[in-house]
Structures are given as C-alpha cells and as structure tokens.
C-alpha cells in the first residue's frame, strides 16, 4: 500500500502540489488524471522517491520514503517498476542490456538466467527477438514496450506508468492499454497510471483520481467520473474547455 500524506512541492514560485492526500491499495489499478502541467508526473516521481517533497510524506508498505537514508530508499525502490513518458531507454545499450541492467546489478543470477528472464519479459510485451537492437532502431510504441519489459524485469510489486499512451497512434495506444491490464492481472501488481488520455484511463482503471490546483479533488470509479456533479471533472472527462473564445465555422 502507498500512502501520500499532505504532500507539498514547490518549483521556484510555482506551488505545484498543495497538500495531496492519497491512499493506493495493494493490487489496485488507479489512474491519476489532470490537465497538462498540473503536477501528475511530479506526484508520480514522489511515489518512488525521485523527488523530495517540501512538506508531507510518502509511505510505502509502512516504510517512509520521504527523508529515508539512501540505502533504505534503494531497497524500497526495488519494489517499483517505472515506465517513463519518453520510455527513458539507455541510448548506449541494446534492448537486452536495458532490460537486464537491474538484474545484473541487484541479483546473483547467472548470465544464462538473466538472458532467460530478459526473453521472458520481452515475450510478455510481445517484443521477443529484439534483444540486439538499439533504442534508436525502435518505434515509439516499441520503446514503450521495451520500457515496460525493463520495468517488470525485477518482478516489482508496483508499476508506475507516466503517460503510457502519449504520442502513440490510437491502435498502438490501445495495445499498450491492453498490456497494462494484462500485466496488472498476470503479475498481480499494483498499477498507478498518470495520464490525460481518458480512453486509456477508462480502460485500465479500477479507480480514477483527479489532480487539480495541486490537490486531489475527485476519487471514484470510472463510472462515477461520468455521473459526478463536479463540473471540472465532467468537463475534463468529456474534453470540454471552460470557455470558447473563438467562433469555429465548419464547412460541409
């Protein structure tokens, strides 16, 4: 279980998170939605201790991440797999080296066992046979899949997805959504997705929370986002701007 308590974060003059409280249950698939620049990715990075809050704390399975000693922090991080927005594959390494890096660093597995695990992870994301390719030889969707294979290599308890479908065509995006659901069920992991893609949010989530103005303003099932009387949530999920300054004429 991940608990976020009264989290505050400021960058310069910008107060991005203003007292975020959130509890993520084990096994849950939760999606954090919100407008671009509202602090979703900032919140996600706090969950794995990549950012240190100005105030508040993050607790993972009863252990405080905030202010933890580096050694303890790294132990907690081993429970996480993270898929970054741009995949963040290491350019200088092959697909195999990318996926196996954590295994080679943290385990005593033999080269053969590592290779077997890499193949298994790549098979799970339908990328078998790409071991020797460099990230520059992969398409955007393929990079996401390899990033996901890397994220699951250490068999994490939590997988965090930062905008998993951003920049992908609808069909590739849908296949990534299927993969998120598949891994959530197959690996029994807790899934946290940050996105503003509502198609993705509806497909993969047990629960959707909305971040707005630096706070969590809504938490509910995907169905509840459509029936809520909160105007801002309804407008966000239907993709409706709050004002229309331009008159648009369509010619038929």
């Amino acid at each position: 279980m991940i608990e976020v308590r009264n989290l505050h974060k400021t960058f310069g003059e910008k107060h991005v998170l203003r007292g975020v409280n959130l509890a993520i249950q084990t096994g849950e698939s939760i999606t954090i939605i919100g407008q671009s620049g509202c602090g979703k990715s900032v919140l996600l990075k706090h969950l794995v201790g990549l950012l240190e809050p100005d105030a508040g704390e993050v607790v993972v399975d009863g252990e405080r991440i905030t202010g933890a000693r580096r050694k303890n922090l790294y132990e907690i991080r081993k429970k996480f797999g993270v898929l970054f927005q741009g995949s963040a594959l290491f350019d200088s390494m092959t697909v195999e080296e990318n996926v196996s890096l954590a295994l080679r660093t943290h385990t005593t597995m033999t080269a053969a066992q590592v290779s077997e695990r890499v193949t298994e992870c790549l098979r799970m994301v339908s990328m078998e046979g790409t071991q020797k390719l460099k990230p520059s030889e992969l398409s955007g969707g393929m990079k996401k899949r390899v990033g996901l294979a890397r994220a699951i290599a250490m068999q994490p308890a939590y997988i965090l997805y930062d905008e998993p479908t951003t920049g992908l065509d609808p069909i590739t995006a849908d296949s990534i959504n299927d993969l998120v659901i598949h891994l959530n069920h197959q690996l029994k992991v807790t899934t946290v997705v940050v996105t503003h893609d509502m198609v993705s949010a509806y497909k993969v989530s047990d629960r959707i929370v909305m971040l707005h103005g630096g706070e969590i303003i809504f938490s509910g099932t995907p169905q509840e986002t459509q029936t809520t009387d909160m105007n801002i949530v309804r407008r966000f999920v239907t993709g409706e701007a709050d004002e229309h300054p331009y008159v648009i004429t369509r010619y038929k």
Binding site: K45, V48, L50, R70, Y74, E75, R77, K78, F80, G81, V82, F84, Q85, G86, A88, L89, F90, D91, L101, A102, T105, H106, R150, M154
Partner: peptide, 18 residues
C-alpha cells in the same frame, strides 16, 4: 545532461541504481 533531460538518470535511480 542528455540522460538527465530524457529521464534516463531518473530511470537509473528508479531501478535502485545510484
């Protein structure tokens, strides 16, 4: 610097690699 702005440094850290 390139690794930092493309989140590769964050990726390393998230894998518990200093």
């Amino acid at each position: 610097g390139t690794m930092k702005v493309t989140e590769q440094v964050d990726a390393l850290e998230s894998m518990a690699i200093s």
